[in-house]
Design a protein around this nucleic acid. Structure first.
Length: 280
DNA sequence: ATGGTGGCACCGCCA
């Protein structure tokens, strides 16, 4: 069974619904994880999402800011929304696929929107950067110890707002002091991955020596000029499911669509084998 | 070297 999972920071799901529809029509993901939906749950465009063919929808939103959602063709039997840093921010949602989801049954998908962290890369001067580091520390604490069962299948996607590797940014040297690529963040991210046992699926398909970006700033007259991008969006997998990954696609062309998000969709395809259920 | 754009809520905040 093929499982196609896409992560996309849409920067307002209501404003971008026609682009979401276009993406779904052209790429048909089984699971679409969105970040920055920017809509409170009571105003979530559930009808439009169902019309796109997703029978199973989970969302965690708030008014104006943040917000995450998972659209799925496969049923789930558990939904979790974790309130990182006890701030009441809508930055996480996870689902576990139900027994009826075939070979995906029991697999868990986490959808995360890590704080951007403001402009000044100093937690003592910038509370937003302090929040980002606290969020990463909590994430590390949560996943520390990895996966209790060797068969636990978990996928973590989202806008993690960190470009961890040298070639995840257009200029490593020029971005070392820029929030998203500072050593304190990239090291914190490496700790989360190492302590949790997560595998960077995108880099299993694109060598670390090759530039790989998922985001290009709005603050440029021409986003293609100089290709000044960053890899802020990620697909991670537990050891039980990482070997089942078959491909990664970064849809760069979506940055050139009419009224685009500043992030583009990232899609992973997994070829799933036998199932085993576990708790989120 | 600085400021650049975009979204939402509301005339500022966050990215």
């Amino acid at each position: 069974m093929r499982l196609k999972v896409t992560t996309w920071n849409v920067n307002s799901v209501r404003l971008r619904m026609s682009l979401v529809a276009r993406f779904v029509a052209e790429h048909r993901p089984d699971v679409l994880c969105l970040q920055e939906t920017k809509v409170e749950d009571g105003k979530f465009p559930l009808g439009e999402v169902r019309r796109l063919g997703f029978g199973h929808v989970a969302y965690n939103g708030q008014k104006g800011y943040h917000g995450v959602a998972i659209f799925s063709q496969l049923p789930f039997d558990q939904i979790e929304k974790r309130d990182f840093c006890a701030k009441g921010d809508a930055r996480h949602i996870a689902v576990r696929f139900a027994p009826e989801a075939g070979a995906a049954a029991g697999a868990v998908v986490h959808n995360l929107y890590i704080p951007a962290g403001g402009d000044i890369p100093d937690p003592s001067q910038n509370p937003k950067f302090a929040h980002k580091l606290a969020f990463l520390a909590e994430l590390d604490g949560w996943f520390r110890g990895g996966f209790p069962h060797s068969q636990d299948r978990a996928i973590l996607v989202g806008d993690l707002n960190i470009a961890p590797l040298e070639h995840d940014v257009w200029s490593h040297r020029q971005l070392l002091d820029v929030v998203s690529h500072t050593p304190v963040e990239t090291e914190a991210m490496r700790r989360v991955m190492a302590n949790g046992g997560w595998i960077d699926v995108m880099r299993r398909f694109v060598p670390e020596t090759e530039k790989l970006f998922t985001w290009w700033s709005y603050r440029a007259a021409d986003w293609t000029k100089g290709n000044r991008g960053r890899r802020l969006d990620h697909v991670w997998a537990s050891p039980a499911i990482a070997p089942m990954a078959r491909s990664i696609e970064v849809l760069r062309e979506a940055r050139g669509w009419d009224r685009p998000s500043d992030h583009v969709p990232v899609t992973a395809i997994f070829e799933l084998g036998a199932a085993r259920a576990h708790a989120i």
